[in-house]
Nucleic acid binder design. Sequence first.
DNA 1: CGTTCGATTGAGGAAGATCAATTAATGTGG
DNA 2: CCACATTAATTGATCTTCCTCAATCGAACG
Lengths: 252, 252
Amino acid sequence: MLASTMSCSTPVAPPRPASSEADATRRQIADALRLLNEHLGPQRRVVHAGDTLYQAGERFELLYVLNAGCFKLVSPAADGREQVVGLKFRGDWLGFDGIADGIYDCTATAMDTGEVWMIRYDALLAASAQQPALLGLLHQAMSRQIARDRESLMSVCTLPADARMADFLHDWAESLAERGLRTDQITLRMTRAEIGNHLGMTLETASRALSRLAREKLIAFAGKGRRDLQIPDVAALSAFVQRVIAPAPLLQ
Amino acid sequence: MLASTMSCSTPVAPPRPASSEADATRRQIADALRLLNEHLGPQRRVVHAGDTLYQAGERFELLYVLNAGCFKLVSPAADGREQVVGLKFRGDWLGFDGIADGIYDCTATAMDTGEVWMIRYDALLAASAQQPALLGLLHQAMSRQIARDRESLMSVCTLPADARMADFLHDWAESLAERGLRTDQITLRMTRAEIGNHLGMTLETASRALSRLAREKLIAFAGKGRRDLQIPDVAALSAFVQRVIAPAPLLQ
DNA sequence: CGTTCGATTGAGGAAGATCAATTAATGTGG
DNA sequence: CCACATTAATTGATCTTCCTCAATCGAACG
């Protein structure tokens, strides 16, 4: 299955025994996918970097569940502003924003080779009459998304640029870890401009933040370009965030 | 019914014929409440300013639908940070964040006298077997919330402080208008610190932003205190946002 | 009537945006 | 395969915005 050969980071066994929490998440994802597969036999679609699943403004019909690869969600405003509002990994659902008004309001673009399962919303509802657990999956995924979006908002609202970048990388690495992918070697498939946009800073500030984190050995650039990076210690990233928040815990 | 006597703004007929769009929203809300009432006969609860429906960390059991009044949602981070992640008005649902893990992860506090309907999540699911429209309501509300949260993120990420404040006031006014409440006289039931927190700025910056908007006649302070304010022209607020975004559309 | 809390306003400083130049990576046509 | 064009990333210099610190004012409350 594609899941084991595609992803944003090199998809081999995790470098260290995954925590039980990460294990739980991975099992949850596997169970969810199995359930969907058994009861809906969803149509598959292989995507390549740059492919879009749907565009803002299109009529909503399908939800997508990501089996491999990674996606970005870009939301356009009427006035031309664009915002990277989210990143999606294996097990994540896409398209919820279309349910309310029958129109997607962002664009989902693959950043990587991957595979998505297409779920007709009406078919899902119909099938969930027989199999209520399907509904549980949907609600859980939507609920999680709401919670995750709030964390993004908090990050942007309460952290300075460097910490925001650290928090972002931490989340990314954790998302990979939860899925059993290695986190010591990840590839950001976004430009500095896109990362900056997502984090509410300019591309220059994003670049500088990465440079500073590298200078402090919290990350390291692998490969030739500066898109592959290495996170020696994921926990050190959140420690950095904490340190920035805590004003002066020393001497007192 | 309480709906007609309580709200964040003086609850009389709208000052001008509501747009058909606002009408549609109002009808949608009324229909949704009727449906919930008929099929679930939800228990009611009257709340007063400061009451909480649930706290972050509590076990999830109930969803709430707001019939009157307004609420704020505050999300606490492990490290002590707090973020006002949303504001809720009549017709809005509260508690979605609890579905995924069975635990609420924010605190819902009334900012006003109001009435909420309590919906047992399991009862809702059970009832929706007979009445699929109930499920539609739930999904629509969750989907809308996801879309709205993204708009918040975009506002924080792309707008300078003044425009962010203008956008915030515009959204607030529009939320009231959609519900048939007057928008020319609204009461912000939050301190400057809370508003600033929600918008990712300090309380001083929030205060200055309000002062500047007042200086430009986009808002006016009513009453004696500075919590009641008047929005002579809601559209002018979004025009202001546009003006800030557009670099220099003149002469060229 | 004083106390307290919230709001406003000012002055100074710091974080981040903008402008600009340089370098590195990628792609293209010869 | 190389020269060249193009796009992304980095870094520096400057300027703006916003934060921080502080003082003052106003309203609400006991």
